[in-house]
Computed example of a mutant assay.
Amino acid sequence: MTERSHEELASVLCDLFGLEAAGADVTPVGRGAMGQVWRLTVSGASYAVKEHLWGVDERAVARGAAFQRAADAVGVRSPRNVPTPGGGLVGHLPEALGGSGVRLYEWQEGPAARPDAAETPQRLGKLMARLHGLALEAKDPPEPWYETVDEVDWEYLAGAPAARQPWQEQLVEALPGLRSLAALVTPSKPDDRILCHLDVQCSNVVDTDRGWVLLDWDDTGAGCADREMAMALLRWFASDGVDGDAIGRTMTAYREAGGTAVLDPERSFAMHAASCLNFVAAQARLALDDAHAEHHADAEERLTNVLTALPDLATYREVARFSTSCGGGNGGAAT
């Protein structure tokens, strides 16, 4: 990444979004596979800045913002998008500062939602039901990332046995599981598709003093309610063993709030499987790409994490089974 001072970055961000630059400060908050998040403080107000490291699709941004507005109307809270003076939602840093596309949002104060909190199943079920209840038409086809897996030369990515890095050793051990997941990947049926958030995970939900706030609408696109629900249940309640009680209570809340998706172990997990496979392949290629040496360490860490927690077919079946056993307590009030 281009070397730059925080003071310089803060000044440019203020200029891009029409804010007063005097006394502005920016601090790094976190880094994901697709971007860097910063906290910009200006005149006592705080904003979240997302810097898109691999480019930004402004048409997708507009689609996500429209879905955000529709979801807000049915009670799904999200951070306000801060526009540029020209009314756009994306600014572009000068090449001297990296040239990335950047977006600005109201800062949301609070911790990430916790899967083990008593009220989480009810809150998550209600959130998913509200999103799916919109049933907005998906005018564009699904992103291939969620539907297909390109031919991957896993042996090449694993490297020669004598020169393997630790993540490559993990990859070799995971190959049978990766191939099993690939067998589950099938395209969705056009008639089943609606507009979906596609990234409802703990790190994208802030537990504020006014309730949950859903972040990161950038992946909004065509999907199926059952596939999105399967992915959410896996991310929230199956990262360290399957929490069947939480899954059952989430689905109870989902049904009570009008959600209709039903998980089928043979098809509902296709999107999760495709996402896992494409993520592993993309990060492995990045870790071996000398043109992006500055991203190697991050890619290797992400590979270690995902390969350590790679799901298997038994986990998918278990999640599907618990999703039909809607029961348990009410898990606390949802907001």
Rank of each mutant, 00 (worst) to 15 (best):
T2Y: 04
R4A: 10
S5D: 09
E8Y: 02
G18K: 11
L19P: 01
E20I: 02
A21W: 01
A21L: 01
A22D: 11
A24H: 01
D25F: 05
D25N: 11
V29I: 12
G30D: 14
R31K: 15
M34E: 10
Q36N: 12
R39L: 04
T41Q: 06
S43V: 02
S46A: 15
S46K: 15
L53C: 08
W54C: 03
G55P: 00
G64H: 06
F67M: 14
R69A: 15
A70I: 05
R77H: 11
P79I: 13
R80W: 05
G88M: 03
G91N: 04
H92P: 01
A96S: 10
S100I: 00
L104N: 01
Y105F: 15
Q108A: 12
P111W: 09
A113Y: 09
P115V: 03
P115N: 06
P115Y: 08
D116L: 08
A117D: 08
T120E: 11
T120G: 07
P121S: 12
Q122E: 11
R123W: 15
A129G: 04
H132M: 06
A135H: 15
A138K: 07
W145M: 07
W145G: 00
V149A: 03
E151I: 03
Y156N: 08
A163Y: 11
P166E: 10
Q170E: 13
L178D: 10
R179E: 15
S180C: 05
L181H: 11
P190T: 07
L198G: 00
V200Q: 00
C202R: 15
S203N: 10
D209W: 06
L214S: 03
D216K: 11
G221Q: 07
G221H: 09
G223T: 02
C224D: 08
D226M: 09
R227S: 06
A238Y: 03
S239N: 05
G241K: 04
G241D: 11
G248D: 07
T252E: 08
E256C: 06
E256W: 11
G258W: 01
T260P: 01
A261D: 05
L263Y: 13
S268E: 05
A270V: 02
C276W: 13
F279N: 04
A284K: 02
A284W: 00
A287M: 06
H292I: 01
A293K: 13
H295N: 07
H296P: 07
E300L: 11
R302D: 05
L303G: 02
L307A: 06
L307V: 04
T308M: 09
P311V: 09
L313A: 09
A314G: 04
T315K: 14
F322I: 00
T324G: 07
G327K: 11
G327Q: 10
G328E: 12
G331L: 05
G331K: 02
A333F: 03
A334N: 08
